[in-house]
């Protein structure tokens, strides 16, 4: 069973994703800002991280850069959630090493498909 870390400052969205992912058999930990996400990642070493690009304290791309700089964490696949039309975000995200990105609003099923693909690939 894979551990997934979700970092997003929107509690409702986090809860929806958590519900779906737990329903699909993953165990989920949530963080509400970038700094907390980074700390949690170091602590539990999740199998996958879902990062929102716009977060208080540390933005998604900043967390991503920090993750990639850490030799222990750099192999964890990251799915980046970006706002509508955030093309600049996507470009920056892929350049700094996000495995996938999803543009909000999305259907949770979409995320589930991407996640299961990534988790299978790494295991």
């Amino acid at each position: 069973m894979a551990d997934i870390l979700i970092a997003d400052d929107d509690p409702i969205l986090v809860e929806i994703l958590k519900f779906r992912l737990e329903g699909a058999g993953y165990s989920v930990v949530a963080a509400s800002d970038g700094a907390q996400a980074l700390e949690t990642a170091k602590e539990i070493r999740p199998d996958l991280i879902v990062l929102d690009s716009m977060m208080p304290i540390m933005s998604g791309p900043a967390v991503l850069t920090a993750l990639k700089a850490d030799p222990d964490l750099k192999d964890i696949p990251v799915v980046m959630l970006t706002a509508r039309n955030g093309e600049a975000d996507i470009v920056a995200g892929l350049k700094s090493g996000a495995a996938e990105y999803l543009t909000k609003p999305f259907i949770p099923q979409e995320l589930l498909v991407r996640i299961s693909g990534l988790v299978e690939a790494t295991q």
Binding site: P11, I12, E15, I16, K18, F19, S32
Partner: peptide, 14 residues
């Protein structure tokens, strides 16, 4: 408030 919103969401999803 965030906690409450999350609880409401969870309850509806369930």
């Amino acid at each position: 408030r965030d906690e409450r919103d999350a609880a409401i969401t969870r309850s509806y999803l369930q």
